[in-house]
């Protein structure tokens, strides 16, 4: 990227890394949760559903605060993870990725859940009568059929992660090169006199990244959907 200062370039690459890792790590978890919500028949599912949706409706600052309480170095989960795996979230880019993943999670799960609910279970039954185990049925029938929804969910979560601000700044602060993502950098620039041009450039990059992500997902989803419809 020409015309970007090193600080701006750092914020952009950090944002891409944070969002990329957040999506990749939360994808399998999101898929599992979406499967459970779409197919599960347990009485307590509404609780899981509410929990998944919480980051969508809570003020992001509150979500960030909860993350700080749980995943901070003194928090119960954070302390355990540091001791057991040396994994630290507080004031690290990993923490920014965690915050981004949590904030994008409801969007990801919703998209996947809709796709799973659209799959006719009769096709899966047919596959099982042909000798396919549950895992084989999922891999060769369910997954290909829900692929457009999985892609849509991943792109939504990626876009959300790129733009996440409130929970991130609350949880991991705004440290250049460490936790200063694009939105944090824009915010910082706006606090400094004469930072308007930096803010403008970064805002433009945000728009470009977001629009490309949506267009790309549309394109892939269309291709996959056409393949699946059997046309």
């Amino acid at each position: 990227m020409t015309g970007l200062t090193p600080e701006e370039a750092t914020a952009l690459t950090l944002s891409l890394r944070v969002a990329g890792v957040a999506v990749l790590v939360s994808l399998p978890v999101g898929l599992a949760v979406a499967m459970v919500l779409a197919r599960g028949r347990w009485p307590g599912l509404w609780l899981l559903n509410a929990l998944v949706h919480l980051p969508l409706i809570l003020p992001p600052v509150v979500t960030g605060y909860f993350l700080l309480l749980a995943f901070g170095r003194k928090g119960p989960v954070g302390a355990f993870l540091e001791q057991a795996f040396g994994l630290v979230f507080a004031f690290r880019w990993t923490g920014a990725a965690l915050a981004a993943a949590v904030m994008g999670f409801p969007l990801m799960v919703r998209a996947m859940r809709l796709a799973i609910e659209a799959v006719d279970p009769k096709l899966e039954e047919a596959a099982s009568t042909l000798g396919a185990s549950r895992l084989a049925v999922f891999r060769s029938v369910t997954l290909p059929l829900i692929l457009p929804g999985v892609i849509a969910g991943a792109v939504l979560a990626f876009a959300k992660a790129m733009g996440e601000f409130g929970a991130t700044i609350t949880f991991v602060s705004n440290i250049p090169g460490q936790t200063q993502t694009l939105p944090s950098a824009i915010y910082t620039a706006l606090q400094v006199p004469g930072g308007d041009t930096t803010a403008g450039r970064l805002a433009l990059i945000s728009v470009i990244v977001a629009v490309s992500a949506v267009l790309l997902s549309e394109f892939i989803a269309r291709r996959v959907a056409a393949r699946i419809r059997g046309a």
């Binding site: 096709l123 047919a126 393949r227 699946i228």
Partner: peptide, 11 residues
């Protein structure tokens, strides 16, 4: 099992 609605895999 041959189903009434065939149930071929659309993909």
């Amino acid at each position: 099992y041959v189903f009434q609605d065939a149930r071929l895999f659309p993909h």
